[in-house]
Design a protein around this nucleic acid. Structure first.
Length: 476
RNA sequence: CGGGGCGUAGCGUAGUCUGGUCAUCGCGCCUGCUUUGGGAGCAGGAGGCCGGGAGUUCGAAUCUCCCCGCCCCGACCA
């Protein structure tokens, strides 16, 4: 398979991003516009993400289930805001076999409606609550403009859908998941995020309110990395899901929904990648250590391979790969694994065997170290931990260097056209001001950060009083 | 759907303004030998309806018109 070169980091970040994906052989454009073929290298990351997230969902009491891909069109229409929000981007099936369907079917853009149609039958009593379910699935949204991983017509995701007896219980659930997402982003992806509340105009269509985690990419633009919605009783009312309370009354349940998608792979690339390719944090790397034997003569090969066997015998906590392809040169292999973001490369040749050492090279820094073969397992394990931590620190430092308090709307464009980043500014809370700022600067409110950092100030758009700063930024 | 750009080998491209040995170069692929600690070297080789169609011309990758496709910017993005 062809090995692509990343020519150089173009002034155009978009170009760099697609180059990196191509070089790492992660995805291709599909024949259907906006759809993508996820290659094994890209999918391996998704599998690691799935496993980690699934464990976290299970640990917070959730179960997996599956609901249909096709949804009667009328279901979407039951919730007013929901249909208004999704109508422009749903794909519809009108024909099946040789005939036209009586009622068109939409390909799910999200599954609230079909799931709530089931929940109506599943929920009778307060004893049935809470209902905590997650689904791993694909969805289709016919966006006008698409980008590999970040916004594709079809994408893979998980969507959680829960039902609760009280508003407070649902709120607690939404925040529990928000915290799961924050931990996943920071602990696994090594990508710092700011969690908070979406403004009214940015929230999910049909939600009471929406929580989000927002990350910063290396060009200073924001990326919404995950959302957790408190749906209130909107869907319960639309699908008539009531339950008998402990005291015998009849109530509508409160709901949440939440999801993260293959967009996270795009986030990972843009948060850590460099001109040599992607950089995978150790906790998400299917291969953490690429071992490259070096030799000239057959007897050296036997010796080196023998030593590798011995060294890897007890490496059960590190996932390693021995690249013993004879038709490729060591230099080629170095490059190959770098483009694919493997955290550590190990070189071992006759010279190393003589000195009882190996060469370890970090993908994130390029730092080369000569370490003893004794205790190699522990050395590698420690280095993986260090890389995981350093990647996070580096990304956090970058985000902080691109975050500033801004009190003049006039300076937005200057900053965002130059060193783009997060602008912490006062906002009065009105949709009109939000809109005005967006029109003038292309910056949107990424979130109203969680936490109680109150500060008196004046809205940068209208001058009215505000009691906290919110985050503005240009977003993907 | 608006604005801009681009379609030449599997991929990336030169050539188009000024029509005439122009089908170029790199990567990749195949064969052989030498190589292998940063994308190996040399030699040889395979591979093209120059996006499609119609025109102009003695002659079109090149000029004209139409069509198709892709990319970027914008609108849009729960």
């Amino acid at each position: 398979m062809a090995d692509t070169k990343i020519t150089k980091r173009a002034d155009d970040y978009t170009r760099w991003y697609t180059d990196v994906i191509a070089a790492a052989e992660m995805a291709d454009h599909a024949p259907v516009k906006g759809c993508m073929v996820i290659r094994p290298n890209g999918y391996a990351i998704w599998e690691k993400m799935q496993r980690a997230l699934d464990d976290m969902f299970k640990a917070t009491g959730h179960q997996n289930a599956y609901f249909p891909l096709l949804i009667p069109e009328s279901f979407l229409e039951k919730e007013a805001e929901h249909v208004e929000g999704f109508a422009p981007e749903v794909a519809t099936v009108t024909h099946a076999g040789s005939g036209k369907l009586d009622e068109p079917l939409v390909i799910r853009p999200t599954s609230e409606t079909i799931i709530w149609n089931s929940y109506r039958n599943w929920i009778q009593s307060y004893r049935d609550l809470p209902l905590l379910i997650n689904q791993w699935a694909n969805v289709v949204r016919w966006e006008k403009r698409t980008r590999l991983f970040l916004r594709t017509t079809e994408f893979l995701w998980q969507e959680g859908h829960t039902a609760h007896a009280t508003y407070e219980d649902a709120e607690k659930e939404a925040l529990t998941i928000l915290e799961v997402y924050r931990r996943f982003a920071e602990d696994y992806m090594a990508m710092p995020v700011i969690s908070g509340l979406k403004s009214e105009s940015e929230k999910f269509a049909g939600a009471d309110h929406t929580y989000t985690i927002e990350a910063m990419m290396q060009d200073g633009k924001a990326l919404q990395a995950g959302t957790s919605h408190h749906l209130g009783q909107n869907f319960a009312k639309a699908f008539d899901v009531q339950f008998q309370t402990e005291k015998g009354g009849l109530e509508y349940v409160c709901a949440t929904s939440w999801g993260v998608s293959t967009r996270l792979i795009g986030a990972l690339i843009m948060a850590h990648g460099d001109d040599r390719g992607i950089v995978i944090p150790p906790r998400l790397a299917a291969t953490q250590l690429a071992i490259i034997p070096i030799f000239r003569k057959p007897e050296q090969q036997a010796e080196v391979m023998g030593r590798i066997q011995k060294l890897t015998r007890d490496m059960d906590s590190v996932s390693y790969h021995i690249d013993d392809r004879e038709q490729r040169s060591p230099g080629w292999k170095f490059n190959h694994w770098e483009q694919r973001g493997i955290p550590i490369r190990m070189e071992i040749g006759p010279k190393d065997i003589e000195k009882n050492q190996v060469v370890l090279v970090r993908r994130d820094t390029g730092e080369k170290s000569f370490v003893s073969q004794d205790g190699l397992h522990r050395t590698v394990r420690d280095m993986l931990l260090t890389i995981q931590g350093d990647l996070y620190k580096k990304a956090l430092e970058f985000r902080e260097s691109r975050s500033r308090h801004v009190d003049e709307l006039d300076s937005f464009n200057g900053i965002l056209d130059g060193e783009a980043g997060f602008l912490w500014s006062h906002w009065c809370g009105s949709a009109a001001c939000e809109e005005k700022i967006k029109d003038q600067t292309k910056a949107t409110i990424r979130c109203i950060p969680s936490g109680d950092e109150r500060e008196e100030g004046k809205c940068i758009a209208c001058g009215q009083s505000s009691d906290r700063r919110v985050i503005f930024g240009r977003a993907y």
